[in-house]
Nucleic acid binder design. Structure first.
Lengths: 337, 337
DNA sequence: TTGTACGCGTTATCAC
DNA sequence: GTGATAACGCGTACAA
């Protein structure tokens, strides 16, 4: 099945290829009837411009690279759907890659995308990324990159983030207002901004209510179910359980719930739990998990919009940080009966 | 940041562009030392062949389209990861699209991918797809397409599927062997092969044990949590609960569990539940869900391998159906105490 | 309004 | 072993 080219159409209609081309790019003068004739004939012949040739000619790929740490949890897929919503409308396609939470893989992905000549990149950093030299170099060369959710302070770039501080504050405040006194925080990878922010929100909420936080109230956890299980098992073993737990994210919270239930503790009667980042799981776990809902689709849409803006504008755009808002979904896991 | 081209390298080294090109495509004669010199210099200058030009010249995009119904559940993401494993190695990139379980969207995706000149497509059909004329036309034109999981009988094409019949049979048999007698089956969209197969497995397992299936034992459900909830609520209302339920997939099973628990029924004491298609959720729900594990990554890898095979071979390849194997993960939700 | 001719950056087919 | 040169399919100054 050989592809029909512009030449075939030109030959068929006894016109030059430029005329055909013009009919398809409506920024040129062309008689309306020839234009219509061409479009009609082209459609009949099944012609459409060869994207490869077009890209080569225009020196841009109309493709956007997306790098996420993973897409097994629903968070990143939802963001990607948001991105796709915008980019599809503008005629861009997505090359989606995952870093697997691995900095080397991430760098390799970036280089692959770069050499694929994507017009821009939307990225959420892996949890272990520290070396940002290469990214910064791209940014300095005016290559369009938008960061979302997972960012690093040193990076001078446009980012779409969630107000982690505020909502961690609210989530903690919710527990305090429910009357819980001894509240533990399970943190995530400590280099990530969002973890720092969530931790700070946790601390400042206590400050507001003049509550003490002992050092052992803040425990290094992680992003996965297993992290929650591990940490809570340790607490149970050392007989040092809190009234309530504020986990850095939902999987971690779910791990905590599973471990507690396994040892016969009731939730929220014995220990209340609050998660972060509404996920499909929060409504499946028993009891349903109180958690902070992030505007995942919105994050995607905003990132995509900013990126396309940046791609289209030829001059440098001043980096800015967009902070999106969320919501606290209160469910059984944190309700004092 | 202008890109370095082959010309720049040629000029710098006082060589012709053909020589440079040869150095990068090692199928031609070239003196080893000039070759090394070129590669070294190119690296210093930051040159790499422009993929767009290469693609135009070679008339193939080195990109593969992937169309899935959704990627919010972990099933499709896992398949995609499997696909990526293989394609990345072979230098192909993925254009991932989702049909949103919508036949029109699916067709639009196919056409977009086609006009993007992807070298092939890997697709899992939406649950409502019936009109396969366009796909069949592509296939007849020798365009490489691999179907996985969701297929339609009429389609003459290579497919990678799961042995839905066998494992539905085993899952049902497991319930029967546990001593359950009145077992209901919640089905999925009835046009999909996999739903028909799972239903048949359910029926034949009963036949093997000479158990009757009354018509009302088979209930039209759906693929989502809400479908499970809806159906079970109806059963509760009409006071017609079974001993056990075999659901067409995990979300459906989880919906059933949620509805039952909400009305105070215990699982598995009052009603046992078995799901299908191991998902992240099956281990989060309480009690843990007995379910059939599909080799998601393997499905992806196999599909990718077959597709690449088909892309590389110029002549027609006889359609074949690859059937992959699974495993029954027995957990609490189906264990008679 | 339309046609001619060149360039985009490669690879491939010739000569030399 | 290396260098011209013609494709690949398109957009677009420039000429007509």
């Amino acid at each position: 099945m050989k592809h029909i080219t512009i030449k075939d159409v030109a030959k068929k209609l006894n016109l030059s290829i430029s005329t055909i081309s013009r009919a398809f790019n409506d920024k040129y003068d062309i008689r309306e009837d020839t234009r219509e004739q061409i479009l009609k004939c082209a459609k009949e012949m099944g012609y459409y411009p060869n994207p490869m040739a077009k890209k080569l000619q225009q020196q841009c790929s109309y493709q956007i690279g997306v790098i996420v740490p993973e897409f097994l949890n629903s968070f990143f897929p939802e963001v990607i759907i948001g991105i796709q919503e915008i980019t599809a409308k503008e005629g861009y396609q997505l090359l989606i890659m995952q870093s697997n939470e691995n900095a080397d893989q991430e760098l390799a992905n970036i280089k692959t995308l770069e050499s694929s000549m994507v017009d821009g990149i939307i990225i959420s950093l892996s949890k272990e990324t520290k070396d940002i030299a290469y990214l910064q170099e791209l940014l300095d060369n005016n290559f369009p990159i938008i960061f979302f959710n997972r960012t690093i302070s040193e990076l001078k770039a446009t980012a779409v983030v969630f107000d982690d501080y505020k909502w961690a504050f609210f989530a903690t405040e919710h527990l305090i207002q429910q009357g819980y006194k001894k509240i533990f925080h399970l943190t995530g990878p400590k280099d990530l901004n969002l973890c720092k922010k969530r931790k700070q929100g946790f601390i400042d909420a206590h400050r507001k209510y003049n509550l003490d936080i002992k050092p052992e109230y803040i425990i290094e956890g992680g992003f996965f179910i297993d992290d929650g299980i591990r940490v809570v098992n340790e607490l149970i073993k050392t007989n040092n359980l809190p009234d309530a737990i504020f986990a850095v994210n939902d999987p971690s919270a779910i791990g905590a719930i599973k471990a507690l239930k396994k040892h016969g503790f009731r939730i929220p009667e014995d220990v209340a739990i609050v998660g972060f980042t509404e996920s499909r799981l929060s409504d499946v776990i028993d009891p349903p998990l109180t958690t902070v809902m992030q505007p995942t689709f919105e994050i995607g849409r905003t990132s995509a919009q900013l990126l396309i803006e940046q791609i289209k504008s030829k001059h440098q755009i001043e980096p800015k940080t967009i902070v999106l808002n969320g919501k606290l979904n209160i469910r059984e896991s944190s309700l004092k009966s």
